[in-house]
Design a protein around this nucleic acid. Structure first.
Lengths: 154, 154
DNA sequence: CGCATTTTTGCAACTGTGTTGCATTTTTTC
DNA sequence: GAAAAAATGCAACACAGTTGCAAAAATGCG
């Protein structure tokens, strides 16, 4: 047995699934655990790597299906960044949160702020459903490390 | 004889290119013409189809490169929708415009409204560069044609 | 004007994300 | 415990976008 130091997160994930009346399958629980532990939206690739690093890699199709299922359940949120890669983050229930996409490292962070969802002027007949706000710029790490062609920075 | 009914648009495209001090190559002019005529952001595929319908299909790589070049010049703006396909629209110079993505037909429209770019609460160290706002919902056409009369309603 | 240089275009092959079909395993239901 | 349903895994596929290299057009220099 592996010393799993976070049964709490496993429990949390399982609870989220049971609230939906769905079976808490290992793959779903594992994906939710990873997403709960992440501070940024995770791509399919990073999830697979994280799972492999945890000693239990799952099939890529299974991962895609779990992510699709989670998105259909409204548990996660998928966003395609500028690199066309979908990244997934936990949905914070009621209100959609804004994202921050770093133009240097490409990471996608989740901002939590009460967005004044001021729908711009919508043409007549258009129905607004949700407003997605993504801030582009440089994250703290990349802003602190200017492109001085020198990567040596402690 | 090619019935070119819009020398104006051709001229407009050429002018935009010359303003950048760049050569107005046929491919660039053609792409800009198509984008000038479009009311919504166009994908690589639709641009290629439109060009083919116009009797002059260009190579897909050339199209990708022209689009990349136009984006690098700041003339167009590329946005990846939920289907992970990049769509291109003319940059309206100074202020970025918001987009509307229809969840039914997938089309991406450009909204023009002075967005109060109220950057949500950015974590310390993060540098905001640009705020991208995409409204999700149903466009006028799709909202007017509900999927009610389909086979099973459940 | 001709030739070297740069830019642009075109073709073919490739990468990588995501999907589909089908067989196998696991879970639920009776 | 067996049948049915859901979930998983493997292989093959589809599609957007990219890279490398060669041909063609534009540009610069003598």
């Amino acid at each position: 047995m592996q010393a799993a130091p976070a049964p709490t997160r496993h429990d949390q994930a399982t609870r989220l699934l049971h609230q939906r009346g769905a079976t808490a399958t290992p793959a779903r629980v594992r994906v939710l655990q990873l997403l709960l532990a992440a501070d940024a939206a995770m791509s399919h690739q990073s999830l697979q790597q994280a799972a492999a690093a945890g000693g239990h890699p799952f099939d890529k199709v299974t991962l895609y299906r779990v992510l699709d299922w989670l998105a259909a359940q409204g548990l996660v949120h998928s966003v395609a960044g500028h690199d066309r890669v979908r990244r997934f983050s936990l949905m914070n229930a009621h209100h959609a949160h804004a994202h921050f996409e770093c133009g240097v490292c490409g990471r996608l962070f989740c901002l939590r702020g009460s967005l004044a969802s001021a729908t711009p002027e919508l043409p007549p007949g258009f129905v607004s459903d949700r407003v997605d706000i993504t801030v582009h710029g440089r994250c703290a790490e990349c802003a602190a490390a200017p492109p001085a062609s020198e990567a040596s920075e402690e």
